[in-house]
């Protein structure tokens, strides 16, 4: 499978007259995790929304390899190889786990290799595999989060976007999720990880971008993991 780099250039997002993101640029290459952290309201979700086409960018561009995806409809972006694990998981609680996974297939570019991909994903998340026939609504938060990631992965994307996947999870489950992310990166996907847990993100990501008030302020590397809080604090205040 050919892999391409997600390139976001000079992205500006506005809600009416209210600016949320002021011209940020970054790239996420295959086989790397890029972290995106920042305080509440910094514009992290808005950045993801602009990439996935939920909001039209006011200006700037979003490209995946050769393809220009700027301002395309969400389903077009999804079918171009960008999968999202949305904020709050957005699992279809009234459908079964299996049906949720089948919905993930909607984003595939080819129907070949479905069985293999499914098998690989379920291997990564045994909890999901065990509860395929159950209604997704009865799963615990951690299980739902894993289902949401699995649902994104069965689309066989090139880029995986995650919006605060550890929100509300216990430390143990967070470990599971972050371990899975490392495996996913190693399989060659480009991963953009939006998080509130700064330290853990900095530790796992190849680079971590710090966003505040819609602007990129700082880039951290795993070496900074030890004193992330201090650095961010020093820089933002």
């Amino acid at each position: 499978m050919s892999s391409s780099t997600l390139v976001v250039s000079d992205l500006v997002v506005r809600y009416g007259a209210v600016p949320a993101v002021h011209g940020i640029s970054f790239e996420v290459a295959p086989g790397e995790i890029v972290g995106l952290i920042g305080p509440n309201g910094a514009g992290k979700s808005s950045t993801l929304n602009a990439i996935t086409g939920l909001v039209g960018p006011f200006s700037g561009s979003v490209r995946l390899g050769e393809r220009d995806l700027t301002g395309r409809a969400p389903e077009v972006v999804a079918r171009s190889g960008i999968a999202l694990v949305p904020e709050g998981r957005r699992i279809f609680g009234e459908l079964t786990v299996d049906e949720n996974l089948r919905l993930g297939l909607a984003g595939r570019r080819t129907q070949r290799g479905v069985a293999e991909d499914l098998e690989r994903v379920l291997e990564l998340f045994p909890v999901v595999a065990e509860s395929r026939a159950r209604s997704a609504g009865v799963l615990s938060g951690g299980q739902q989060q894993q289902l949401a990631i699995a649902r994104a992965l069965v689309a066989a994307p090139e880029v995986l976007l995650l919006d605060e996947p550890s929100l509300g999870l216990s430390p143990a489950i967070t470990d599971t999720v972050f371990d899975a992310l490392a495996t996913i990166r190693d399989s060659g996907l480009a991963v953009l990880l939006v998080e509130q847990r700064a330290q853990r993100t900095v530790a796992i990501a190849d680079r971590t971008l710090v966003l505040a008030n819609g602007e990129l302020r700082l880039t951290l590397t795993p070496d900074d993991a030890g004193d992330t809080e201090r650095m961010i604090h020093a820089y933002l205040s």
Binding site: L54, A73, P74, A78, R79, R90, G107, R108, A155
Partner: peptide
């Protein structure tokens, strides 16, 4: 959400 997953 359906559209985000690629449902046309």
């Amino acid at each position: 959400t359906a559209r985000l997953l690629g449902v046309r």
